[in-house]
């Protein structure tokens, strides 16, 4: 196991390097640049700007300059949000996204497995159909529909919740309710469906049959044997889901004016804000690689049949 971890960790470094290098050169291929404007900047002024950001140097020099800065944990200035460095922008947005992501994913895992267990135990009964219909509905209705509908009902009609904003605004913690409810839906649906499927499978397996034959109580069987066996696909899914929910919440952030990282991801790509894009790529790949790494280790802990040779 420890040898596996070491080997797995060693492969992270070249992966990371490839991601950074590839992205750095790739993003310059996109049409337009960070200073494309409707009212075109006169060439002399554009030259001043390019010089200020060292963008008049050969690309390879820019690359080494950038990698050097990154090694000092400096992601550079933003070309668009000129008063902020990339570190400041991502630093402000990251805690917000983590909060929203963890709350949403927590809700999704909780409700998802619960609904999955119920429908697996009541397979092909009305509870099963009801639960699975909710899950299908959760994934069929896009977030950009759910968000405005929630806002319309709970903020405008019932006036229970503020329309938008974030926790430290005047409206307080209630602002997290609608975004997290919206954001969790597709993840909830995936987890409910997947846990139902794998629980049904585990329920039929020999070791559960044995456990039942031994006369163990049903709740004990479910807690001790079924859940543990059925968690594997869910855990696998949580790796990409975690990085996805943190960075891919742009729709929810847009609708509910949440100052998170997802909007920065999309905006920076559209604005060709090179340094911010690179910052995004680095942050995202760190989250993703770590999450997948953790998932691989969890495999061994969850399933004694898995061994890394």
């Amino acid at each position: 196991m420890s040898r596996f971890i070491v080997r797995r960790f060693l492969s992270v470094i070249p992966t990371f390097l490839i991601i950074v290098t590839l992205s750095f050169f790739l993003i310059r291929l996109a049409p337009g640049g960070p200073f494309a404007r409707e009212k075109k900047i006169p060439p002399e002024i554009l030259a001043n700007i390019m010089h200020k950001y060292h963008m008049d140097e050969p690309l390879i020099n820019q690359y080494f300059r950038y990698v050097g800065d990154v090694l000092h944990f400096d992601l550079g200035p933003s070309f668009r949000y000129k008063d902020h460095t990339v570190n400041e922008l991502l630093g402000a947005a990251f805690p917000v996204s983590i909060t929203l992501g963890v709350v949403s994913l927590g809700l999704a895992v909780f409700f998802g497995t619960l609904v999955g267990i119920i429908s697996a135990l009541r397979q092909n009964k009305w509870q099963d159909y009801a639960a699975m219909s909710v899950a299908v509905l959760g994934i069929s209705i896009p977030l950009f529909v759910v968000g405005p509908i929630l806002m319309l009902v709970f903020a405008l009609k019932l006036k229970w919740l503020p329309t938008s904003g974030w926790i430290n605004s005047r409206a307080g913690w209630t602002t997290i309710i609608m975004p997290s409810m919206t954001l969790m839906l597709p993840y909830f649906a995936y987890i409910a469906r997947m846990s139902r499927g794998s629980i049904i499978e585990v329920l039929r397996s020999d070791y559960v049959r044995t456990a039942r034959a031994k006369g163990l109580k049903e709740t004990v069987v479910i807690r001790k044997h079924v859940l543990k066996g059925a968690m594997l696909p869910i855990v696998t899914y949580l790796g990409p889901a975690f990085s996805g929910i943190i960075t891919g919440s742009v729709v929810v952030e847009q609708i509910f004016v949440v100052p998170g990282i997802g909007k920065i991801f999309v905006q920076s790509a559209l604005n060709r804000d090179y340094t911010v894009i690179m910052g995004d790529v680095i942050v995202y790949s760190i989250i993703l690689i770590t999450a997948n790494f953790v998932v691989d280790i969890l495999y061994g802990l969850l399933d004694p049949r898995i061994s890394y040779k």
Binding site: I19, L22, A269, L270, D280, V281, S285, N292
Partner: peptide
């Protein structure tokens, strides 16, 4: 991992 991390847009 690399495919995931490249700026897709």
């Amino acid at each position: 991992d690399i495919m995931y991390s490249l700026p897709y847009m």
